[in-house]
């Protein structure tokens, strides 16, 4: 496992796209958070909105980049055929996936911390005077890490980076869109509880926690289940299939 980790880390470090994507995560997250905060012109502390959550809106944009980064970690190997070289060097396939998962989680976490802190700082400067809830910040970092794992698992299962990024983005955004058009409030709530994005982002809610369809940590739990399911499916297919 140690050598697998070392190898995966070297691989990610020397891949030309990684640094750019990591920067893109930070820029897109902070940038869109700032844009949203600026667009919401309301009196300090007095617009009845969940300001911590508002200044973390960029996470919902940055997650798309995180997903692409994670998909590329294995997807690019499938598309170049290098996955066979990898599996020749490291025949224990679950170890390979585990090592990739650790590296992805680490890189995403390291990227997410400045992205989230940057968003909160910018939000605090634009809409000063609101209390920043630590749970929302820590939760957002965990959220992005889990999105990364979801992307990795999906890409491992799909074996095609283009299809995988399509599937992950579809999975993330299909629930909120459907939840918006579903007329039945009960169903709408269920959809928001089940969707990886709508449930996972409940961790950002700081104001009226009851107004959110699912509790903050339960919501993150739902996303964890999604990520685990994706990794498990990917792991099983990787172990079963001929490379």
């Amino acid at each position: 496992m140690r050598s697998a980790l070392h190898a995966e880390w070297t691989k990610l470090r020397t891949s030309p796209g990684t640094l750019g994507l990591a920067l893109a995560v930070i820029v897109s997250t902070v940038g869109s958070s700032a844009a949203v905060a600026a667009a919401t012109g309301c009196a300090p502390g007095g617009c009845g909105q969940d300001l911590t959550r508002l200044s973390l809106t960029g996470v919902q944009v940055g997650q798309a980049v995180v997903a692409v980064l994670a998909v590329l970690v294995i997807g690019d190997e499938y598309s170049t055929g290098m996955v066979r070289v990898t599996l020749t060097a490291l025949p224990r396939r679950t170890t390979v996936l585990a090592a990739k998962a650790v590296v992805v989680a680490g890189v995403v976490a390291v990227t997410a911390v400045p992205a989230v802190l940057g968003s909160l700082t910018v939000g605090w400067f634009i809409l000063p005077g609101h209390e920043v809830v630590p749970r929302a910040a820590v939760g957002s970092v965990l959220y992005l890490v889990l999105i990364g794992l979801l992307g990795l698992g999906t890409a491992t299962a799909a074996r095609n980076p283009a299809a995988a990024s399509g599937i992950v983005l579809g999975l993330l955004y299909v629930f909120p869109i459907i939840a918006q058009v579903v007329t039945d409030p009960g169903w709408r709530r269920h959809l928001q509880q089940a969707g990886p994005m709508s449930a996972g982002l409940a961790v950002q809610a700081t104001g009226d926690v009851d107004a959110v369809p699912i509790g903050p940590w339960q919501g993150l739990g739902v996303l964890t289940l999604w990520a685990l399911a994706a990794l498990l499916t990917g792991g099983l297919l990787l172990a079963r299939h001929d490379a």
Binding site: G17, V36, A39, T40, T57, Q60, V61, A64, V68, V71, L72, G75, D76, S79, P161, A162, S165, G166, L169, Y173, P176, I177, Q180
Partner: peptide, 25 residues
Amino acid sequence: RGVTAVATAVAVIVLPYLLAMTVLP
């Protein structure tokens, strides 16, 4: 390059709609 192109295309074409419908004020 496949992945870059797909990611860019999705970001340019699909993402704005999704964000406008669900996330953005």
